Measured scan of single mutants.
Amino acid sequence: MSIQHFRVALIPFFAAFCLPVFAHPETLVKVKDAEDQLGARVGYIELDLNSGKILESFRPEERFPMMSTFKVLLCGAVLSRVDAGQEQLGRRIHYSQNDLVEYSPVTEKHLTDGMTVRELCSAAITMSDNTAANLLLTTIGGPKELTAFLHNMGDHVTRLDRWEPELNEAIPNDERDTTMPAAMATTLRKLLTGELLTLASRQQLIDWMEADKVAGPLLRSALPAGWFIADKSGAGERGSRGIIAALGPDGKPSRIVVIYTTGSQATMDERNRQIAEIGASLIKHW
Rank of each mutant, 00 (worst) to 15 (best):
R63P: 06
D269V: 09
G85D: 05
T261Q: 10
A40E: 05
G90H: 09
R273V: 12
I283Y: 02
T112E: 10
G242I: 12
L188F: 01
L137M: 10
I45S: 02
V257F: 07
L73T: 07
H24P: 00
L167C: 05
K232F: 15
D177A: 08
I45D: 07
R271C: 01
M66T: 07
M127R: 03
Y260W: 01
E145K: 01
M180K: 00
F64V: 13
H110Q: 13
T186L: 05
Q203N: 12
T27D: 04
D36S: 09
I278W: 15
R41F: 03
M268E: 05
K71P: 03
V214D: 06
E61G: 06
L192D: 01
E164C: 14
G236Y: 12
D250Y: 07
H94R: 13
Q204I: 15
H151A: 08
L160M: 15
D269Y: 03
L49E: 11
G90D: 06
G216N: 06
V157D: 02
Y95M: 08
V258H: 08
Q88V: 10
D231C: 06
A246G: 07
I283L: 14
A235V: 12
A266Y: 15
I45A: 04
R189I: 04
K53C: 02
I206D: 00
M127D: 15
G194F: 03
D207P: 03
A230S: 07
I206Y: 13
L38I: 11
E277W: 11
L218C: 00
S201A: 14
A133F: 05
D269I: 15
A183S: 09
C121M: 07
G142P: 06
W163D: 12
L135V: 11
D212E: 14
W163Y: 13
P224R: 07
C121N: 11
I256Y: 14
H94N: 14
T178A: 05
E175W: 01
T187D: 00
A123R: 00
Y103M: 05
D83R: 01
L160V: 07
G263A: 03
A230G: 11
F64Y: 10
P25M: 03
K144S: 07
L135P: 07
E175M: 06
G239K: 12
W227P: 02
R162I: 02
I140E: 15
A266R: 15
S221P: 04
L191M: 09
L218Y: 07
T261G: 05
G39Q: 14
M268I: 10
T116P: 02
I93Q: 12
R118P: 15
E166C: 02
L135D: 01
A266G: 14
N98S: 02
T179Q: 06
T193K: 10
K284L: 02
R59D: 08
I45Y: 13
M127A: 06
A182V: 09
L79K: 01
I45E: 03
E61H: 03
M268A: 13
